[in-house]
Structures are given as C-alpha cells and as structure tokens.
Design a protein around this nucleic acid. Structure first.
Lengths: 223, 223
DNA sequence: CGACTCCTTGACAGCGTTCAACAGTAGTGG
DNA sequence: CCACTACTGTTGAACGCTGTCAAGGAGTCG
C-alpha cells in the first residue's frame, strides 16, 4: 500500500513550510499513501514529521473496544506528527490518496547553536495552534448539540477547503461522526435538516460536495 | 474579593518551579482569591502566569447561553495561564480559597540571549503537557459513557490529590459535570452506582471526601 | 433558627443511538 | 456494457442513556 517516491531524488521539490519550521532546509522526501494507509501508529517512535501535499489525513485515538475519536483532519499545507515527546500520541491515516512531505523529527533540534532557537519557537507556535484547536473542540464535544456540532464542522471545513464556492469533503460520514462524537446516522440526519432549511445543498452525484447557501444562519447554529 | 499579599515583600517565598520554568528568578508575588474569585478572564491580555500554592482552580470556556466546559482543574504545584498568544483563552476561577504565585509572562521571553532558550524549551514542555491532557480529554468527552467518564475522573484525581488514603475533592458536582460533559445529576448517580458496587465510599459529613476501595475495578471501568 | 448551597433521588421526556431496510455510487470482472 | 459486489449514505422505528424537572435531605453560616 505504501509507495515511496522521490526519496533522495535528484530534483528538489519545494518544502518551504517545513524549511521555515526548522529555520533551514530539512527536506527529506515524499511518501504516497492509498486510501486508509497508515502513516504512523499511536505509540510508535516519532521519528518523522509530515506535511500534507495533496489529499487528506485523519489522526485519531481508539478505545480498547474500537470506539474512535478523531482529533483532527489534516489538509494540504498542514503539518502534523509534531511530538515533543518520544512517541506519536495518535494514529494517522490517509483518508484518500495522499502525498505527504516528511523530514526527520530530530532535524528540528539537532541543528547548530543559532538554528535551534527559531526552530523551537516555531514548534511552540505549532503545538500552541494544536492546543487551541483541541481546546475549542473540547467545548464542542462536551457541550454542543448534534446540530451545533455539525454546523461547527461545516464552518470549519468551509474555511479550510471551500474552493469555487463548493466544499468537497474528503472524509466519510463515519469520519465526521468520529470527529464530532456522534454516530454517522446522526450526522446524516443533521445534514438533511440543514439541507431542508436551505442552509446547504448537495451538488454532483455523491453527497460529499456541499454548497453553503446561508452562512449567517450556519454561524448562528454554531452558537 | 481579591486580596493582594506579599507583593514586593521583603522576604522571598520559594517559587522554584516558576524559576525553573524561566531558567532564572522571576518571582513576583502571590495573590489570594476567595471562593469563585476570577483570576483572569477569557480574552484578557495575558500579562501574568500563575502557579497554585494552595487551593484549587478551574479554567473553562462558555457558550453564549451559559453552557460551560471546564478544561482543567489546577491543583497545588500546577502552573497555568501560559499562553504563547496575546490573550488568555480561558477564564480561571478559584474553586476554594486559593493562593497563587504569579510572575509576568513576558519575563519568559525578554531575558538575555542565554536565558531564553531553556525558557522557551520549558514553555514548550508545559504546552505539550496541556496538549496531551486535552487530547485524552477529547477521547473522554467524545466517546466515553457517563460511568466511564466519572471513573476516569476519579482515577485522575486519585493520582493528583489522594493523601492518606482519602481523596478530598475541592470541586462541586456541577464542576465535575462541566469537566466531563455531563449534568450534575448524572455525576451524582454515577457516584452512587460506584458506591453501590463497592468501588468507593464517602467519609466524613460531606460527600466530597472519597475513599477508593477497588482501584482495579475502577481502572477497568475507565476502559 | 432560617436561608442558602450542595447533593441525592425519583419520575419522565427527549436527544441521540441502535437496528434495520433501502437506495445510490463505485469498483470489478465477465 | 452489464451483472455482481462492496461501500456509502439516507431514512424509519424503537430503544435507552442522559437530561430535565422536581422534591427533599443534609450541611453551612449568618
């Protein structure tokens, strides 16, 4: 399932964001994963960090009986797999065919005297952004209703992947449900309600392409 | 409600942890807050960071209609109010009579060349610890049942404030509920169930002093 | 003692889950 | 191209966990 490409290739794909993170050039290569391909597993040694080039990634935790909580969706440009500990605290999987850039984690810290300061600072910014997202997601998980959760999800995704007026969701209803702490049926029902109220509409053959028709109302439902 | 003590006092209370965080001495003073006293509010400029000396602190977010999600309880020794952004992202309140040490936030970053590296590193460790807690709490909020949530809460608090075999909870049932994404009635019922199963017992006149009688079973319920 | 807060417990309702059936889409191979 | 299968999503019906509403007890403090 995993195909390694470009590693140590002669040409140099741009990886400015990862470079900027480290404060110097750290490009290592690219990986490509098929649908459902595991990028790393919870508890594994965190030797790489990643940036999505194309596609989408979900990162999640599991309970022993299989209940899943998706922590975040990573879309093109997003950096993930940043751990200041030893191991990954999530499992990360490609949702669709996905290409990621990667670099060795230790390259962030093992640089010379001058390089390490901006690197640590940038890691701090990144971890802080993750923390902020986690904090607002706790409010969502603990205190919002199903409709509010789905509305919040749509608002978030609208800001991250709406292009040309259409939002093309890479993830399934089950993924959305496991992100919002719901069942897939409840997500489906909430979307139907929103469609019935004229807040959104589906386009195309599948139900994964959404047009938002009433953003103010959606924002209001997000409360 | 707010009484400022010791500020710029002649003697030097120890504040080794805060000092260690900054990599040099940054002690500013202590504040004392009564029950429910607000230490800082969400959105305020984050000019101080704090460490609990005695008492307990809750930090939370609110929805517009008053629904509350408590993000964390801060107990003696815990450092809180660390923001790498401009403003606090939570409101922090004293749960009981509480004394906190404080220092100016910028003292972490405005030190000379050598001092700032360990400081940023320590802030990173702290933020990472917060992130880890938030991540496991998302799993709890999104995917655990009421009984599992309460069991997890007891396990967490057992590790943090059991002394001499007794756990004395500083927070009310409502606080616990808002931490776990439940109602106070559900928390109360879950505790009654656990008592009925012989997992715990109440001691003393109030219901806030708990003895754990069957930790293996409790850990198992936490799944 | 009275007022207040906190907690428990009961009865009931409702939101979201569970279980199930069905439809549409995509992928596969003949 | 079409049948066959697997996957995904929608919708309905019934259940049940948790929330809501309410009453009452117990502790605290003036």
């Amino acid at each position: 399932m995993l195909v390694r490409i470009h590693e140590n290739a002669g040409h140099r794909p741009r990886s400015r964001e990862l470079d900027a993170l480290a404060g110097h050039s750290v490009f290592c290569g690219e990986f490509r994963y098929g649908r459902g391909g595991e990028i790393f597993g919870e508890g594994e040694f965190a030797d790489y960090l990643y940036q999505v080039s194309t596609g989408a990634v979900r990162s999640y935790k599991l309970l022993s009986d299989g209940r899943r909580q998706i922590n975040a969706f990573h879309l093109p440009g997003d950096i993930f797999g940043v751990e200041s500990g030893e191991v990954y605290r999530f499992t990360a999987e490609a949702i669709v065919e996905t290409t990621v850039r990667f670099t060795r984690s230790h390259s962030l810290f093992e640089t010379g005297a001058d390089g390490v300061v901006p690197a640590v600072n940038n890691v701090l910014k990144l971890v802080t952004r993750n923390l902020q997202h986690a904090e607002s997601h706790m409010l969502l998980l603990g205190r919002k209703t199903a409709l509010e959760k789905v509305a919040a999800f749509l608002v978030e995704m609208d800001g991250r992947l709406t292009a040309a007026g259409v939002m093309i969701l890479p993830m399934s209803r089950r993924d959305i449900a496991d992100y919002l702490g719901l069942t897939l049926e409840t997500v489906s029902r909430a979307l139907s309600v929103l469609k019935g109220e004229g807040v959104l509409d589906f386009v195309g053959p599948t139900q994964r392409q959404i047009v938002l028709l009433n953003r103010p109302k959606l924002a209001q439902l997000d409360s």
